[in-house]
Simulated assay, not measured.
Amino acid sequence: MESRIPRTSAHGLHDILSGVWRSGAENFRNGWVAALEAEWGSSEFARRHAEVAGLLAETIQQLQALPEAQQARYSRYFPQWWAAVVQPDVGWTDSGRPARVLITQETLDHLASAADLLQGTLRGTTSSPAGSNLEALKESCTSWLELLEQTPDSELAPSLREEITAQIRHLLWLIENAQLFGIARISRESTTVVGALAQASTVLTGQDPETGGKWRRGFVSFIAASALLATGMTTLQTAVEAGTGMVKEIARVVDSVTTPSG
């Protein structure tokens, strides 16, 4: 695997497929084991390979947002990239198919070209983050796990709390594996967590003002950390101010939905 952290999902996909291709393994199975650094048949291997499929899905989605001519150029390679990930027509342990034939150099080059195009076109967004500060986001995730654990059942349904907890743990797992799956996968997943927290905030019972205050502060902190990563803001204060503005807007929307008219 390459030492740099991939900047987009397409870069992450390219680096992993290149890792299989360059592994020198005698079959696809061992090539994937080498690239994903996980034991064949283990839960961790399944989890990592499933994440690779997610990188492919994000890459396709982002390329489909490009101008029509560029879409047409790169969409020709979607089936080849997909086949490289799942290998639907051959056995993964077939000794007659070394990892080297997983994908062609030409197809890898087109994937790298697509990744570079997406990085330049989408820079400063969750699809191509301009920042690299993962510590702030990691700290915010850890704080939220503690806050969720402290939130009483009377304030938030346990099922919803556990769902959000699982999402945050997945985000932490992505941060731990940033060198494998890349910055963009982390940034995009953080927006999923933001949505989950915003939705959960609307159903807090409000019986405990202290809990509500902690949630608001935690929400602003998480949005700030996400903004630092996506936009490349150089100061936390700027990100906090941006986050505060977003919280106010969300609060206005929630009030308009929950407050009876007339």
Score class of each variant (00 low, 15 high):
119 Q>L: 12
85 V>H: 03
262 G>H: 05
114 A>T: 02
225 A>I: 05
140 S>T: 07
127 S>Q: 12
259 T>D: 10
126 T>M: 04
197 L>M: 14
96 G>M: 10
33 V>F: 04
240 V>S: 03
128 S>M: 05
192 T>C: 07
16 I>V: 11
125 T>W: 02
99 A>V: 04
208 D>Y: 11
119 Q>E: 15
9 S>D: 12
160 L>K: 10
190 S>V: 11
140 S>Y: 03
94 D>F: 06
188 R>Q: 06
85 V>E: 09
118 L>I: 03
18 S>A: 10
167 Q>C: 05
256 S>A: 11
258 T>G: 10
110 H>A: 08
69 A>P: 01
20 V>E: 01
203 V>I: 13
224 A>H: 05
123 R>G: 00
222 F>T: 03
170 H>K: 13
221 S>Y: 08
201 S>H: 15
78 F>P: 03
125 T>F: 01
213 G>Y: 06
75 S>F: 02
151 T>W: 04
180 L>P: 05
143 S>E: 12
176 E>P: 07
56 L>H: 03
213 G>M: 12
261 S>F: 04
178 A>F: 00
32 W>G: 09
24 G>V: 01
182 G>P: 01
73 R>I: 11
93 T>Q: 13
158 P>R: 11
200 A>Q: 02
257 V>T: 11
14 H>S: 07
138 K>L: 10
55 L>P: 01
187 S>D: 01
53 A>F: 12
